[in-house]
């Protein structure tokens, strides 16, 4: 297996020296990051510090100007667009702050959709989708459309959809940002339980400490650099 020099042993996804600028704005200035299988890492930091950009680079959504993102034997920035989108579709799951659900489809169809896009037959896809909806405690809403649900329910459906392909890495950008604290914590409890069950890694961007407290570890992004807080204060 080929690995970039900075990849920590045993890591599932490891980025080193990420740089990204948008015109005159530097979003990332040499960020390093790594996550192990089954590990939940919270990414915190002030607004505009580069958290979402880091997540997008790690997930192969944005190509960094410089730096490596090793996933298994592959370096994501060196892949073609088609190859990266295949990795995203089959290996990664995504949860964002607001409704990424298709309004015309029922919950069950929404959750089954990623499997259908990967070529799974309808019946098998919906069976797996139902299982995920049950796991996320929202199976009762399986026949409803996104417009007919509460924010907390929609977000749990969105998590079910992110989990349905059994991804190796789940990327969540402010997944509880639009929820009250009770619903936010319910989403976090279910998301982290499901991820630990399947040994999926979670990259969780949040500005809420009580949400970050569901993670195993915390990384703080400041001025486009990521800092692992594990060793801080032990000088």
């Amino acid at each position: 297996m080929s690995r970039s020099p900075a990849a920590p042993a045993g890591s599932l996804l490891a980025a080193a020296g990420l740089h990204k600028a948008y015109g005159p704005t530097t979003a990332l200035a040499g960020a390093d990051f790594s996550v192990h299988p089954g590990e939940v890492v919270a990414v915190m930091g002030p607004s505009g510090s580069g958290k979402s950009t880091l997540l997008h680079c790690l997930a192969g959504i944005v190509r960094p100007d410089a730096g490596t993102v090793r996933y298994g034997a592959r370096d994501l920035p060196s892949l073609s667009d088609a190859e990266r989108s295949a990795v995203r579709r089959t290996e990664f799951g995504f949860v964002f702050q607001f409704g990424q659900l298709v309004p015309e489809l029922t919950c069950l169809e929404n959750v089954a959709l990623p499997l259908r896009l990967n070529g799974v037959k309808r019946k098998a896809a919906e069976q797996e989708a139902l299982h995920r909806l049950e796991q996320l405690e929202v199976a009762d809403a399986r026949g409803q459309r996104p417009g007919e649900m509460s924010g907390g329910q929609s977000q749990r459906v969105a998590v079910a959809r992110a989990l349905v392909t059994t991804p190796r890495v789940i990327f969540a950008d402010e997944p509880t940002g639009a929820l009250d604290s009770l619903n936010g914590e319910r989403v976090m409890r279910l998301l982290t339980e499901a991820a630990r069950d399947t040994r999926a890694a979670v990259v969780l961007v949040t500005h809420e400490a009580r949400v970050a407290a569901y993670a195993d570890r915390e990384v703080v992004v400041r001025d486009g650099r990521a800092r692992d807080m594990a060793g801080v204060g032990l000088s």
């Binding site: 400490a209 009580r210 407290a213 993670a215 204060g233």
Partner: peptide
């Protein structure tokens, strides 16, 4: 700055512990 960082880390460490106990 590093005093505040160290304190923040210590706080979050306890918050993780309490969250595990809570769950």
């Amino acid at each position: 700055d590093s005093l505040l960082d160290a304190q923040r880390t210590e706080h979050l460490r306890l918050m993780r512990e309490l969250t595990r106990r809570k769950v």
